[in-house]
Design a binder for these strands. Structure first.
Length: 495
RNA sequence: GCGGGCAUAACUCAGUUGGUAGAGUGUCAGCUUCCCAAGCUGAAUGUCGCGGGUUCGAAUCCCGUUGCCCGCUCCA
């Protein structure tokens, strides 16, 4: 673990030194879990997003949208986030363990639960709660989930103290050692308009998906798409995570690359499997090593409130396997809820079968920032060149922030002038870097370190026959190319 | 959120028992250099994370705070 940790440290250091990623607000001491993309990082992030956008939307069955980050507060009631995005947490004062209340309640044996509820029944004065406890005691065997939910709710009631006193910590066994339950709402709240009134509170979106769902009808109508079809979006989302960790991996502000694919309910499995495979292919086609990627299927009892089937694409980070994309079968939950809350019909009429139904949704939700980190980690390499170490980013050329370097072999004899002419020609078409400082070897290494795939060098022969050398980053091999054919050469290599 | 560690130049770090800071790398200006870092000369850069306290005097001791790393926890 120590050696692996060194790798993350090296990447953080390189990111800062070369201008990929900086700590946010660094000169003010930083802001927890927030990062800024520098000149190279912003270019690379943009490349990742462009690749995703082309892959996902340059096809006849997917349309794009760019929805507002701020949405009607009712959206988040309908989506279930207001209800479910809040995790009541409880701490053991003795052993410092922390639990989600619902998870803790789930752990308590039926016998113990019965005992607790019976004790409460005799001490509670509120008649309404008394009745509810009584009702729950009667179904404790048949409907344990409902009873669990009920007990979880009690933690938020006036009877919470009695309940907490009756519990033992499952870790250290200490009775009555818990703090009161505290709620952590994971949605960022802000205010619409300049006056901070309760009525004007709105949320920063915790996921981009809802911006797609609420536009389902609009997009379907305007684009004249027929099911199955998808809507894609790239955008920022915000979650007030309890902890941020691991550099770019868990941050409170992050960017999602999401596509929601609307299908006939009976076709859900087919398209779930299709997108599961397609999305894995996207990462490997862009050079990510397949041995560092895997699927993690969610067991049925761990699924989110909206999902029927779910898998994560995980990457093997230096700190362990971590999710970089989720593929979910969201069923008709979202459209159903929006139909219910907005009272607008969202059903689709299938001309062929003459059926009217709410489509199922297959969601692919990738983290742009997490993908960025994964691509960076995957590309990082320190090659031993016999006493000499070469640090190189083996980034896929399409993701590399700089596509080509233009280097006069020596800074005289007309080479800079020739090189400048090449620069003038290539600069409008590719992100390039001109460098006439220091020895050629050092310049090559500088380019390796930021992952520049091609280095074009002007030498004496160039001045005689108009050819330059093109050095390939990974192999370090060089070929001669006619200077007039460089645009075509690079275009081909980068397509 | 709990516990532990760390915080000095762009990066990696050194700074002895408290006396206002150094190295290497990198960067910049030259020289050299016809193909893969560490050749020569010169230069710039830090209120030692931030705030307070102790002291004649704090990078060094104490308190608080912010950030990062590690282990738990969490990750709808």
């Amino acid at each position: 673990m120590n050696g692996k940790n060194d790798l993350l440290e090296k990447i953080i250091s390189l990111s800062k030194r070369k201008g990929f990623v900086y700590q946010s607000s660094e000169i003010y001491g930083g802001l927890n879990g927030c990062y800024d993309y520098g000149p190279l990082g912003s270019e690379m992030l943009r490349n990742i997003k462009d690749e995703w956008w082309r892959f996902m939307t340059y096809r006849d069955d997917v349309e794009g949208v760019d929805a507002s980050i701020l949405m009607s507060p009712e959206v988040w009631v309908a989506s279930g986030h207001v209800e479910n995005f809040t995790d009541p947490m409880i701490d053991c004062k003795n052993c410092k363990s922390r639990f989600r209340v619902d998870y803790l309640v789930d752990q308590i044996a039926v016998k113990k639960k019965t005992k607790i509820l019976e004790a409460l029944l005799s001490s509670v004065e509120d008649e309404g709660i008394k009745k509810a406890i009584d009702a729950n005691l009667k179904k404790i065997a048949e409907k344990p989930d409902e009873v669990n939910d009920f007990i979880t709710e009690l933690f938020d009631s006036g009877e919470a103290a009695k309940l907490i006193a009756a519990l033992n910590c499952p870790v250290c066994g200490t009775p009555g050692s818990f703090t009161p339950a505290r709620k952590f709402n994971l949605m960022f709240k802000t205010f619409l308009g300049s006056v901070e009134e309760t009525g004007s509170a709105i949320f920063l979106r915790p996921e981009t998906a809802q911006g797609i769902f609420v536009n389902f009808g609009n997009v379907q109508g305007a684009s004249r798409q027929k099911i199955p079809f998808g809507i894609a979006q790239i955008g920022k989302a915000f979650r007030n995570e309890i902890n941020t960790r691991y550099f770019l991996f868990r941050t409170r502000e992050f960017e999602q690359m999401e596509m929601q694919y609307f299908v006939k309910p009976s076709d859900d499995k087919k398209y779930y499997d299709y997108w599961k495979e397609e999305r894995m292919n996207w990462f490997t086609k862009l050079g990510m090593k397949s041995e560092n990627l895997r699927y993690h299927d969610h067991p049925a009892n761990k699924l989110a409130h909206y999902a029927k089937e779910a898998t994560d694409i995980e990457y093997k980070f230096p700190f362990g396997w971590g999710e970089i994309e989720g593929i979910h079968n969201r069923t008709d939950f979202d459209l159903g809820r929006h139909e219910q809350y907005s009272k607008k019909g969202l059903k689709y009429f299938d001309e062929e079968t003459k059926e009217k139904y709410l489509p199922y949704i297959i969601e692919t939700s990738a983290g742009a920032s997490r993908s960025f980190l994964a691509f960076l980690v995957d590309a990082y390499d320190e090659e031993d060149l016999g006493g000499d170490t070469r640090t190189v980013l083996h980034l896929h050329p399409r993701l590399a922030p700089v596509k080509a370097a233009i280097l006069p072999l020596v800074n005289k004899d007309g080479m800079p002038e020739f090189a400048k002419k090449i620069e003038d020609e290539l600069r409008p078409k590719f992100k390039i870097f001109y460098d006439d400082k220091a020895a050629i070897g050092r310049r090559y290494r500088r380019m390796d370190e930021i992952g520049t795939p091609y280095a074009i060098t002007v030498d004496t022969q160039t001045l005689e026959d108009n050819t330059v050398t093109v050095r390939e980053r990974d192999s370090m091999e060089q070929i001669r190319v006619d200077a007039s054919k460089l645009t075509g050469y690079l275009t081909e290599k980068l397509s």
